[in-house]
């Protein structure tokens, strides 16, 4: 079984549009939307939700004013490293990290420390395999934990149903949910764009991929908007041992397909659609050459 994660560093380069297309082109696969706090894959891949489960994230501390065993000693206020407790002993839930230090040291047992429901996990069926996705509650934490759970579930399904491929649509950035999306993946497909920002961010995400020992492939989206920069990116791939998977031209069909709720390759037979098909051909042959991980 192979795991391919689509990432970009910079947001808005076209990760989700490309993931939706390659998920439609792959014969049989599990696809995961790991951009759990701004999930979009479900908008562009026809699916039917068949299973819903709530996501239990971390714990949150709460000083219950009704129980009122609080003596106002200030122990919690002094120990909290996150400035989450104010002098009138209310807890700011956004600042609270869920470490439980306040609850542990409260001499009056006035602080409750319960697990929180932070979102929902879904399993859906699509034309060529299951989709695992989620919705993180607004302003909730633990996106990394949620991504890890989605990937675990996907692996389990792939095993049970003998599906040889898991494709993950990763979040932007390089932080916690990205690390959770990339760890133990066999290969990364970096979707970049020929802009100064795109190139800068692509290099950081490439460095992360190297740290995680994943094979790295790259494609350039909207390549014709800046041909000189696209050439530079290709050169960069050549000198950095990155497999170049192809370039996709700017095409209004990408947004039209999104508006129709379909993947690009399902909706259109135009230039971008052809280019994405070529990218997928390359990626699947690269994947064939990449050895399976032992884990």
């Amino acid at each position: 079984m192979k795991e391919l994660t689509v990432i970009s560093g910079k947001g808005g380069t076209g990760k989700t549009s490309i993931t939706a297309s390659i998920a439609s082109l792959a014969e049989k696969r599990v696809v995961i939307d790991a951009d759990v706090d701004a999930a979009n894959l479900f908008l562009t891949l026809e699916h039917k939700v068949v299973e819903t489960e709530s996501f239990e994230g971390g714990h949150k501390a709460e000083i219950n004013p009704d129980i009122c065993t609080c003596t106002g000693c200030g122990e919690c206020f002094q120990r909290c490293q996150f400035d989450a407790i104010s002098l009138n002993f209310t807890i700011d839930h956004i600042s609270c990290e869920g470490c439980g230090v306040c609850a542990h040291f409260c001499p009056a047992d006035a602080i409750s420390f319960e697990r929180q429901i932070c979102g929902e996990k879904f399993i859906s069926t699509t034309a060529n395999g299951p989709m695992v996705h989620a919705r993180l509650g607004i302003a909730e934490e633990n996106s990394g934990l949620l991504v890890s759970q989605l990937r675990q579930r996907a692996r389990q399904m792939a095993k049970e149903q003998h599906i040889p491929l898991i494709i993950t649509d990763g979040p932007p950035g390089i932080g916690c949910p990205v690390i959770a999306s990339v760890s133990n993946a066999d290969a990364l497909l970096i979707v970049t764009e020929p802009t100064l920002s795109g190139m800068h961010d692509m290099q950081r995400v490439m460095k992360l991929g190297r740290q995680m020992n994943a094979a790295i492939y790259l494609c350039i989206n909207k390549a014709d908007l800046n041909p000189e920069a696209s050439e530079k990116i290709k050169e960069f791939c050549g000198s950095n041992n990155i497999r170049f998977a192809g370039e996709i031209p700017f095409d209004k069909a990408v947004i039209e397909s999104m508006r129709m709720g379909q993947s690009l390759v399902t909706y259109s037979d135009g230039a971008a659609s052809h280019a994405v098909k070529k990218v997928w051909q390359n990626v699947s042959s690269f994947l064939g050459e990449t050895r399976d991980r032992l884990i």
Partner: peptide
């Protein structure tokens, strides 16, 4: 601000006096 709606975005946006939302006219 960073993209997304979880901790990094919330930590950045809290205590802002005004949020300027840059939006694009697509379903995403």
């Amino acid at each position: 601000a960073p993209p997304g709606t979880s901790c990094p975005a919330v930590v950045t946006l809290r205590d802002a006096d005004f949020a300027l939302l840059v939006a694009e006219e697509t379903p995403f």
